[in-house]
Design a protein around this nucleic acid. Sequence first.
RNA 1: GCAGGUGUAGUGUAGUCUGGUCUAGCACGGAAGCCUUCCAAGCUUUCGACCCGGGUCCAAAUCCCGGCACCUGCACCA
Length: 486
Amino acid sequence: MSEVQDIIELAKRRGFFWPSYSIYGGVSGFYTYGPLGSLLKRNVIRSWADAYLSIGAIMVESPVVSPESVFRASGHLERFNDLIYECSRCGNRQKFESLLKEEEKGREFDQESAQGYVRERKLQCSSCRSDRITVKEYSLMFPLGKNDKAEERLYLRPETAQGIFLDFQLLLNQNRGKLPMIVIQTGGGFRNEVAPRNALVRLREFSMGEVEVFIDPETEPFRPDASYGEVHFLDNKGKVEMLSPFDASGKGVVRDPAMAYFIQRTHMLLVSLGVDPERLRFRQHLKSELAHYSSDCWDAEALMDGDWLEIVGIADRGTYDLKRHGDVSGTSMEVRDGERKFIPRVIEPAHGIDRIVMAIMAHSRKVTGRGYVVMSFRNGVAPYHVGIFPLFKKDGLAEIARELYRNYSSIDAACIYDESGSIGKRYARQDEAGTPYCITVDYETRNDKAVTVRERDTGKQVRISIEELTSVPILQNAKLAEKFSQ
RNA sequence: GCAGGUGUAGUGUAGUCUGGUCUAGCACGGAAGCCUUCCAAGCUUUCGACCCGGGUCCAAAUCCCGGCACCUGCACCA
């Protein structure tokens, strides 16, 4: 089985995620996060948010449903409402535009007029020469309901970023007028993908963590740290280099120092979440694959099954979005600095949360010598921090363990109690859940008020008093850490 | 969306070609219990499936048609 197939199998079996709506036959592109997955995902989002809040970012939460005007201004509608034609003889599907003669391109069509045009000119399918051609609208945008009046049409947002641009002036005011300003937003995004695939890799409803960094173009407030280590770069000329972001910026591999800085931050975040640095690279987009709004883009890509998967896109959106919304809405997006007026430029690190979850799972999965699976999640993302068990249910051990669970859970909710099956089976269950520690109450506990703590990755066990254990969350327990390091 | 393949308990599978003792088998898993003084041990009991809808036939998990989902490739991918 492939890496992704292994993860999907584990995910269904252990409750990380599974396809949605299965009792009604399923709908492609939608997944439900189960008990473990929803905790894992929550931790990823929290780590992401904390990483940016800690450098002064502010957070915002805008609606998922947006009016058409937003996407007309942003360019999404134009870019993603393609007219296509479908040939009912050979099944070929192509852009309607490809049927037009050079001089006709640029002429405006809607579905009806395009269909009329096809009939009138007896246009033929370019692959089989049949004239059984139907013009259809194809859009990656999710429209809500139907409404003839453009100004009343609503869509699900394809990215959270627009919600930040729209309220730029309000946010800047909250930031007390200061640039640079970093605004973050997490939430759902919706794209009506043609072919959703590979579980969380390509979803039609997905979670994003977007960061919009607004910069005065005459300043350089962000520069990578000279001390940060090497990162795998692949530029748009196909050149692969191991460089620190600082050197990448210095040598001009990454032109913009702010871009290099956010590559560094992204690298730091992803590695701290559990993406394997050996299987992580930053790839510059080719000119031809740049989005309509961006002039440069570096993707963080994780290696899975021999393929590099985009998990974060760091785009230089320039002044495109603010300019567009300024022009179309008539609201000024300018910033004043004394006499000077300008529109800030924007660097956008956009994180695909679900894909990051997949990458973390794939890179954390270890198979032991005996063939058992251990998910070596970093402490910060593990769904549960600790499992609490009695060695046996009888002789009062379960009672002690349950009491320990009650007490411990009041200082750290990320714990789980289990008394079923053998002790080995319970350890194995928590290994698959990626729980870093397990606590076992045994016969000695009745006398010494101490328990055994077992470490997931090493299997190492140490003994510690219940009192010490319940006084501080296990991940912050210095005494315990000391015992394990001995 | 196209082409090809696949769809059996929570998971992995046997059975499908060649329709009938399939009252759908096995393993893992879940639950209850016994046993067990720390890494998926063993024993007992138990839970649980033929993707959905039509059709053919005396009879369909098995053959046919349609739908849905998944996989691979192509196309698409802000």
